[in-house]
Design a protein around this nucleic acid. Structure first.
Lengths: 163, 163
DNA sequence: CGGGCACATATGGGATCGCATGGGAATGGA
DNA sequence: TCCATTCCCATGCGATCCCATATGTGCCCG
C-alpha cells in the first residue's frame, strides 16, 4: 500500500495531540519519511493538507513550471510554502497541531483524516460530512459528462471505476 | 479465470466478518493481490463496489487525467479516495466490513456477492433480488432494441456478460 | 455402480496483538 | 520558578490470527 486511502476520525486530547492513523503512518514511512509531516492550510477549504516527501516534491514541481520572478510564482510560493509547518510524529504516532492550523480548519475536539492518494486532508468531522455529501452529488454530474463525452478508451475505465 | 463471475450469498458473523467467495479470492490473487481489497460505496446504488489492484489503477487513471489542485480533481479525490476502504483478507478468506460501509448498503446478517467482471458488488440479499428483477426486464427491452438495430453477434455478448 | 474417504469452503469461537487514548514524569525555555 | 512541550508507560477496545466444526463435492477404491 503506497497511497493514502480511506477516512478515519480521531480525538484531540487535552494537550492537543492527535493520533495519525496507523495506515497513514505506514505510507509516510514508505514515502521516505524524514522525521516530519508537511502540513498547510488547504487553499480552498476549511481543512488542512498534509503529506510526506512525495507531496513536497509535487509542490516543488508546480513552482518549477512557473517562470522565476513572475507574480504568479511569488503568490503561489507564499500561498504554498508560507504556511507550511513540519509536524513531527512522536513515539506513539501522534502529532500536535499548532494553533494557527487548528484555527484554519476549525478543529476542536476531533479530526477526520481523509486519504487522497498522494496526500491527505484533516477536517473538522462535521464539516467533512457536509463536504462529502457535496462531492458526491457533484461527481454524479461529472460522471454523466464523462459518459457523454465519449473518450472511448477511457470509457471502459470509467464504467469499471465508478459503478 | 480472471474475472469476477456469478453470485454468492454469505453470512455476516457476530464480529462483522464475511467470507469472500473462494473464486473471487482466486481472481484477486491473479490480479496482483497486495494484501488488500479496495471497497467503496456505489455512487448510485445501495451497494458496495470492490476489486483488486486493477480497480485501484483505474481510479488512479481517472485522477491522473485531471490537473493537480483543480476543483474537479479535489472533488473526485474526495468522492473516490475518501470513501475507499482497504479491506484486508484474513487467513480464512474473510473481510470485516466497517460500520460506514455496512450502513450504506444496509447490510446486517448476510451479503450477496455479485461478479461484474473487473470488479464485484456487495448487496443486501433482498435488495439484490429486487435489483435483479429490474435488470432482467430492462435487458428484455435492450435486446429488442439491438434486434431492431440488427447487430446480432453483439446481442449474445452483452447478454451473457451482464447478467 | 455404490460407498466412503479426502479435500475445500464457509462459519463459529477463543486468544492474542496493535492501536488509539489518557495521564504522569522528565525536559527545556522564558 | 512556571509553563509548555516531549517522552514514557498504562489501559481498554477493537481488530487480527489461529484453531475447531460443519457441510458439501469430487475422487478413488472396492
Amino acid at each position: 500500500m503506497d497511497r493514502f486511502v480511506s477516512t478515519f476520525t480521531n480525538k484531540i486530547d487535552s494537550k492537543g495531540r492527535v493520533s495519525v492513523p496507523a495506515s497513514f503512518r505506514a505510507v509516510l514511512e514508505r514515502d521516505g519519511y524524514a522525521g516530519g509531516l508537511y502540513c498547510y492550510p488547504s487553499l480552498d477549504a476549511q481543512a488542512l493538507d498534509a503529506g510526506g516527501e512525495r507531496l513536497a516534491k509535487k509542490i516543488d514541481g508546480l513552482l518549477a513550471g512557473l517562470p522565476d520572478y513572475s507574480d504568479e510564482r511569488d503568490e503561489l510560493s507564499v500561498a504554498l510554502y508560507g504556511d507550511v509547518q513540519v509536524l513531527s510524529i512522536d513515539g506513539d504516532g501522534r502529532i500536535v497541531l499548532p494553533e494557527s492550523l487548528r484555527e484554519h480548519a476549525n478543529l476542536a475536539t476531533a479530526v477526520t483524516f481523509v486519504g487522497l492518494g498522494d496526500k491527505f486532508q484533516m477536517w473538522e468531522p462535521k464539516a467533512f460530512e457536509e463536504r462529502r455529501r457535496e462531492a458526491r452529488s457533484k461527481v454524479q454530474v461529472t460522471r454523466k459528462l464523462f459518459a457523454a463525452g465519449g473518450r472511448s478508451s477511457d470509457d471502459d475505465g470509467n464504467e469499471g471505476a465508478r459503478e
